[in-house]
Design a protein around this nucleic acid. Structure first.
Lengths: 336, 336
DNA sequence: CTGAAAGCGCTTACAG
DNA sequence: CTGAAAGCGCTTACAG
């Protein structure tokens, strides 16, 4: 069998005659080498693990749209691990030890112990949408984006601006949502407005929008605008406002974050980030590391862009874009 | 090491004392058994392969939303293989041989040779969205759905109804698109209308909508309605009509298929199918087969439902639903 | 150029 | 109850 292996991997010199013979038999039998055995023997699994929280969320999917073709192109299998609850993060990383040649983690970092173990084992890890000192990262200026969204609202004349985001959770660490909230606070600060805690609503991702909107409108001085930490949360708010008979943006201007595909159809004003590109870049870094290359740019920062559509307008006014939801009248502003 | 293995798998009787000692050392070293070696030794990889064409399409994602939690819950790793071109189907199946305990294939069947090999190797396969004689399947009555969509249009008074679908491709075999087209033809037939070939437009998935719409409107007697084989194609048509200054549904009624999340936001009339459920059922069947259970219902048929929203109306009229895109006024009809 | 052998890191009968 | 050994199916030095 040594010889068969040699021709299949064309590793060493094999006479053309035996080579032929082996190939013929292989074809006839439909023989396929056992990938597991090969992996054990070579120490390379030819697969890479992708860890993501809620991989069916559009923002994550759009990132995967960047990574999948890169990995497939390089001949790697993609093992996907979904992390639906924070407590499952460590189990997710551990389930991949010894099964993959490299790891790409989206919006999630390993525990310090697991990180150290990866380094020790020589298994490269790249983080997308998560800052880190020890591993290569692809990030975005979330605080800057939050500031930009808020300044857009301030510029329209809003002064009572609410924020809606995820409840902070220890594992996702400084989550994107909390960083975006920081930008929101800074923008208010710079505008000389004080933060009104009753306007900051945190909750489980995308849920509870109806309750939150009700609470907001029940306030003595309700907000005239809202910045949500993600498009889906923003859209849930838009829905909730309309469901109670309100109008967007007349009764409430709404800004989202991400610019997922849905945002365009819903004509949502949002802060766009290059999701697919983030995945592609992450995969590139990982592939380079797997190659043993020195990474030239292990810490990449991607640009953000405000996309103004139909869900924002000056307080009490209609949007200029409201009537053509699908043609997407669109104005942009780059973030620093 | 035999003993360590025994306590970790609590396979045989081990004295409480050594058991403790082993567990302590394991915890201290953070030892994690090598999954590849274990797989080679036991013959079970504890992972299952999921093969799908274009897994980032919303319809596929919504199916995956059903399968991922099932597999994770049963302790299986999910290896995802995307098939972007028909020629890559066989490579996709083969890349998984010897790496997985079972296979779930979405909208795609293996070649007869590969199917036979799977059977021989005792690797269970379940097909979702693809009929098959030899393997368990989860399907939907695509022809019935196509008929239903077309009858809705006929019922509104349309007589010139176009169809837009995917180009037939040998590998995807009788594709969902072509089955839906059959239903369209039958409905026309039953209504005593003859099929006008110039109204049937096939093209690569979701592309070319602009060109197709231009061609359609350039006809001497252009269609007043269009049934698209998928929501994304339908939405592309809606966009194209509006981009050239036309109105939907006044100038063209449009019906889609699938009812993906986007359809609701775009207020699209469509034939809804239970995508997440299809994935869940498929995973259930696979898990049962992996368990060695006899499958009680290896051939499942899921129901379809027409959802009337704002993109359809009698020829030349406005839709009743047009003004409240997000509140989703919705009427339904079950398909046989 | 090509056999025969060792080894990858586990699991699991097999002795003891 | 617990060592020692064989075996899972490959790859790869090592002889010849």
């Amino acid at each position: 069998m040594g010889t068969v292996s040699r021709v299949l991997n064309d590793s060493a010199a094999v006479s053309e005659a035996t080579r032929r013979r082996v190939l013929d038999v292989v074809a006839e039998l439909g023989y396929e080498p056992n990938a597991t055995a090969r992996a054990l023997s070579t120490g390379r699994t030819r697969s890479i693990g992708v860890i993501a929280p809620f991989f069916t969320r559009s923002s994550v999917i759009e990132r995967l749209r960047g990574v999948a073709p890169m990995l497939a192109g390089a001949g790697y299998q993609l093992i996907l691990v979904d992390v639906e609850r924070a407590e499952l993060r460590d189990a997710a990383f551990r389930s991949l030890f010894g099964r993959v040649d490299g790891l790409l983690s989206i919006s999630l970092a390993p525990s310090p112990a697991d990180g150290a173990r990866l380094v020790r084992a020589g298994v490269p890890l790249v983080l997308v949408d998560h800052a880190h000192d020890e591993f290569p990262t692809i990030t975005v200026d979330d605080a800057g984006g939050g500031r930009c969204a808020t300044e857009h609202l301030l510029g329209l004349g809003h002064e009572r601006i609410a924020f809606m985001g995820d409840t902070v959770d220890a594992v996702h660490g400084g989550s994107a949502s909390s960083r975006r909230c920081v930008g929101y606070q800074r923008a208010l600060d710079d505008a000389g407005l004080s933060l009104r805690p009753e306007l900051v609503k945190l909750g489980p991702y995308g849920r509870e929008a109806t309750g939150i909107v009700d609470e907001l409108f029940a306030l003595e001085r309700p907000p005239t605008a809202l910045f949500a930490a993600s498009d889906l949360q923003a859209l849930a708010v838009v829905d909730a406002v309309r469901a109670r008979g309100g109008r967007v943006p007349e009764d409430l201007s709404v800004v989202g974050f991400d610019d997922v595909e849905l945002a365009r159809y819903a004509n949502l004003t949002t802060v766009a980030q290059p999701l697919a590109v983030s995945g592609m870049r992450g995969a590139e870094l990982l592939l380079a590391a797997l190659d043993g290359s020195e990474l030239t740019e292990p810490r990449q920062h991607l640009p953000l862009e405000l996309v103004v559509r139909g869900t924002t307008a000056p307080p009490g006014e209609r949007s200029h874009f409201e009537h053509s939801p699908m043609e997407g009248g669109r104005t942009s502003a780059r973030v620093a």
